[in-house]
Design a protein around this nucleic acid. Sequence first.
DNA 1: TAGTTTTGGGACTTAATTGTCTTAAATATG
DNA 2: CATATTTAAGACAATTAAGTCCCAAAACTA
Lengths: 145, 145
Amino acid sequence: MKVLSKATIYGLRALVYLASEKDRTGYLSIGEISEKLNISFHFLTKTFQTLTQHGILESYRGPNGGVALTKPADQLFLTDIVHVLEGADFFDKCLLGLPGCGVEAPCPVHDFWKVAKAAMKNEFDNTSLAELGEKVTDDRFRLVA
Amino acid sequence: MKVLSKATIYGLRALVYLASEKDRTGYLSIGEISEKLNISFHFLTKTFQTLTQHGILESYRGPNGGVALTKPADQLFLTDIVHVLEGADFFDKCLLGLPGCGVEAPCPVHDFWKVAKAAMKNEFDNTSLAELGEKVTDDRFRLVA
DNA sequence: TAGTTTTGGGACTTAATTGTCTTAAATATG
DNA sequence: CATATTTAAGACAATTAAGTCCCAAAACTA
């Protein structure tokens, strides 16, 4: 049950790492993040560029440069990140891949899937990077294998 | 939110079609199914071969040949099909892709995801092809765009 | 200003998924 | 037996996802 692409997975883990390091001021370098999380530096850089272009991150070049969240981590929610990295229709897809699946023309699993998607969306809408970052800071949850 | 591969999507739709045509005796040809559901014949054939090899379908060659469910449709559940086409670990994957994510070493979204997966698994465990086939037969649900 | 550090952006490679095609094997029919 | 029908099996091509690399641009340091 693979729900998220690698780009999204890496992006999310990196953002939660950023949130978990909230006591540090200034920018965190992509090099540090990719090393700590054991993610390919170049791949993460590309994903971060997308997040920067969409206002989730701000970046700064040069020595002591890096990336930082544009907003306090308690104002950034999983939905925001998923929308940027997976597309705005992320929570609006038919389980059986039928285009335009809906109440007028539902697939046989539409009723169930609608509920499952809503639960998922609700959780993503209400889970902030701050919340996840704290879990990592408290050291009861991990971001890396 | 793409959860199932194309192979699984096509396989499921085709199996539900088979279940929905339960009044017809004998085998249904892959040609008919692929045409009715607007699925590539060759691609569906490959998926059906996998399902045949794993005991979901039985096949018969030659004129009036085709495929048929090995068991009554009310004894075949979504979980059975998903296990064959997606792998037995389908309901056992970390949302953030961390190997070995579990109670001892959970990722930050583990608690939520565990619940979401269980709900999904419960639905798949208890939804039979017969149930879905009936919905299609009753003509209130569709299998094709 | 020269050199170093860091992100930006694009080209490129590799791997996985999806889709197509060809031929073989099994079965039925005349 | 010859021919038509249908699945089996695997090679092959196209597309998408994932990962790598290079060099330019921005910013700091000395």
